[in-house]
Structures are given as C-alpha cells and as structure tokens.
Design a protein around this nucleic acid. Structure first.
Lengths: 117, 117
DNA sequence: TTATTATATAAGTATATAATTATATGCGCA
DNA sequence: TGCGCATATAATTATATACTTATATAATAA
C-alpha cells in the first residue's frame, strides 16, 4: 500500500479545519454553539467585537459546514452542525474546553438574551 | 462553580495550538516527526520549501514545546516531544492523518537519507 | 587554519487574515 | 407603504504570517 490522493486530502482537510479553529473567537463560538443555539446579536453581546466581525466568523464556520442556521423572524439562530463530516474532529477539540454557558448567563443578567427561541 | 482564569487559559492554549498546526507543512512535519526522527536537511529534501522556511517552522514548533532536538555532529535531529503537556491533543489530531513514512522511503530512493543516526 | 556542510537568524517582501466602516438585504410591524 | 431592527456583504485598512534572500553560527574535515 502506497501513498494515495485521499491521504493528501486528509492533510488538507485537517489543516484547514485547524486553521479555522485556530482563532480564539471562532473556537469559543463553536464551543458555545455546540452547547446552546444563539442568534447573531447574542454573540455580538458576548464577544467584544462588532456585528460584521461576528458575521464574518460565522460565515467561515458555516462555509466549512460546522454550523446550521435557523431563521426565526428577524433573528437567525446558529448551532453546531452535528451532522458535519468533521463533527467528530470538532468534538475532540471542544471537549477539552470549559463550558461557555456562563456567557449566556451573563447576557441574561444584562437583559440582552433573545428568549424567543 | 463559576468562570475561572484557567478556563481562559485553556481557550488560549488550544486556539494557539490549533493555529500552529493549522499550517499544512507544520502539521505534516509533526506527523512525520512523531513517526521518525529527522534532521533539517532531510525535511528540506521532503518538503518543497527552502531550508530557512523549514527552520522557521521547526522553531515555532519547538517554541511551543512540540519538538525535541538532538544534535549529532553537524546534524540536528528533531522528533516529537512526547513529554509535552499538549502531546495528547497533538496525538488526537495526528492520529487521524496517514503515515508520512513513505516520504522517508522516497528520500532513501533518492539517496538523500542521513542514516548516521 | 581554511573550506565545506548543516543549521539558524535577520531583514525584507508578498500574501493572507481580521477588523472596521459603510452599505445592502431581509423581516416584522405600524 | 415606510420605519426600525437584525444580519450580511463590500471595501478598506491594519496586522500577522510565510516565504525569500542574505548572512551568521557551529561542527567537521582537509
């Protein structure tokens, strides 16, 4: 058995995934969205970045197949796509991270939670 | 139990590690060096990059604690540092990748192998 | 010692990435 | 319809990253 094209693809796929998750904001977003569906404005309230910055991170994660989106009225709720072919890899990474649910609780204290879901 | 400083560190540590390994060349280097100790000139022969480029990748990996170095004469041999605190994370990633030993075999065929080790 | 080989580092350049600002789109409601 | 809010996209700017070229360091061998 020798080197195959699939081998190369595996290196490409994994390195691209790691590059995507090698950003602290995106990694945190994935951890949180694996625990709890959130809309964009909640994520904006949680992270110290602008709405476009959050949108752009979400776009990259969605393009890679890591997110599901779910519109309800004017809000778009995002959550981890557990059907992604890369979900197991994602899971093995975020399982190491502390829960981010406390961020949602902080949002609630500030009255910024969108609870229409 | 609430949010702690360690939690933040975990997010920082993991995201930095993923950023480091989110480069295809570095990821491949780590896979290979986990299987087989190699010197710099062998890695230069294997990857299509210059010697300084390889050196710079090795430096980053070494700074992160992922590599052990071992000088023998004029050669410096690198291998995965299995004692790294992050080795388990590293292992969970590279275990998914195909063996890179075929690259060593190709080197041998070209007569570029440093077999003094 | 000098020459040669292996490796590292520094400086510069090119490219990629993330963030901001500005604008567009889409939905709900008066 | 028109307005306000949520989100997305485009364009720009700032920053980070990877690579190249040039040079320095270290070891060996003549």
């Amino acid at each position: 058995m020798t080197h195959t094209v699939n081998d190369e693809e595996s290196l490409d796929t994994v390195s691209q995934t790691l590059k995507l998750l090698g950003d602290k904001t995106r990694l945190t977003i994935m951890k949180l969205l694996d625990e709890q569906e959130c809309c964009v404005c909640e994520l904006v309230g949680i992270f110290n970045t602008s709405q476009p910055a959050v949108s752009q991170h979400l776009r990259k994660l969605k393009d890679a197949g890591f997110l599901r989106e779910n519109r309800r009225g004017q809000w778009i709720f995002y959550s981890a796509n557990r059907g992604s072919g890369q979900y197991e890899l994602l899971q093995s990474l975020i399982a190491r991270l502390p829960s981010q649910l406390y961020r949602i609780e902080e949002l609630e204290k500030k009255g910024l939670r969108i609870s229409c879901g």
